[in-house]
Computed example of a mutant assay.
Amino acid sequence: MKKLIAGVVLGVGLTAMAHGAGDPEAGEANAAVCASCHGEGGAKPIMGAYPKLSGLGEKYLYRQLVAIKEGDRQIAEMTGLLDNMSDDDLQDLAAYFDEQNMGVQQANPDLIDEGAALYRGGNLASGVPACAGCHNPQGKGNEPAGYPRLGGQNAEYVTKQLKAYRDGERNTGQNAAIMMDVAAKLTDSEIEAVANYISGLN
């Protein structure tokens, strides 16, 4: 009986962890302000330099929203937008966007082979690890670890973020040190190739 109870408690706990703490329906009510830049459901940003928010992972999205609200991650376009939102509001927003579908784009075929090699196997010579190790071979991310989904993300946005990590401009959050170390070893051409591959990955 004790084993059964322990199993139920563990199962419920893991389910809660898997689904996160946010309320997607409540999040949808606050998501209208986001649509002007990120598109309906966060799936179609108006500019390639803006990220798709759809399906990124609730834990990752929540951490980024908190960092932006607290000023730890500076994004000029986001200034003041989250000021009146509570922690629950941010969790709900993260849950809402995580439930939306990430559309996949058409990658440049000329860069796919180089990008695929980097994403799947890294670069042994320069010490770049495979992106797939943390972000999943299909680019689906790792929700328990808070690693975001990458597959389908805008290539221009991925390029911008990898360069920001490399230049030390994006240095906040639990996993920033990992990404800064990886990006420091990437050349501009490698960043372009892997960002292109990611945009069409599913």
Rank of each mutant, 00 (worst) to 15 (best):
K3M: 07
L4Q: 07
I5D: 00
I5T: 10
G7L: 08
V9K: 09
V9R: 06
L10K: 04
V12N: 05
V12D: 05
T15D: 00
A16W: 11
A18T: 02
A18S: 10
H19G: 00
H19S: 08
H19R: 10
G20F: 09
P24K: 04
A26F: 02
G27P: 08
N30T: 06
A32N: 07
A32H: 08
V33M: 14
A35C: 01
A35W: 09
S36N: 07
S36T: 13
E40L: 14
E40P: 00
E40N: 10
G41K: 11
G41E: 05
G42E: 04
I46L: 05
I46V: 14
Y50C: 01
Y50P: 02
K52Q: 13
K52V: 11
G55N: 07
L56N: 12
E58I: 02
E58L: 01
E58S: 14
K59T: 14
L61H: 05
Y62R: 14
A67L: 15
I68E: 03
I68R: 03
I68P: 00
I68M: 14
I68Q: 06
E70T: 14
Q74A: 09
A76T: 13
A76E: 14
T79Q: 12
L81A: 13
L81D: 07
L82T: 09
D83E: 12
N84S: 13
N84P: 00
D88G: 06
D89L: 10
A94N: 06
A94I: 08
A94T: 08
Y96C: 09
E99S: 15
N101L: 11
M102D: 02
M102F: 03
M102Q: 15
Q105D: 13
Q106D: 15
A107G: 06
A107I: 05
N108R: 01
P109Q: 06
L111V: 01
L111W: 04
I112D: 04
D113F: 02
L118D: 01
L118T: 03
Y119R: 08
G121Y: 03
G122S: 07
N123E: 06
N123Y: 03
S126G: 00
S126A: 15
V128E: 04
P129H: 11
C131A: 11
A132N: 09
C134A: 10
P137R: 12
Q138D: 15
G139Q: 08
K140S: 12
K140H: 12
N142I: 02
G146F: 10
Y147T: 08
Y147H: 10
P148R: 12
G151C: 03
Q153A: 02
Q153D: 00
N154P: 12
N154G: 00
A155T: 02
E156G: 01
Y157I: 01
K160L: 13
L162G: 02
K163A: 04
R166F: 09
D167Q: 14
G168E: 11
G168K: 11
R170D: 05
R170F: 09
N171I: 12
T172C: 03
G173A: 06
Q174S: 13
N175Y: 13
A176G: 09
K185T: 02
T187F: 04
D188E: 14
S189I: 06
I191H: 01
E192S: 10
E192V: 11
E192L: 10
A193R: 08
N196Y: 04
I198R: 05
G200M: 08
L201S: 05
N202F: 07
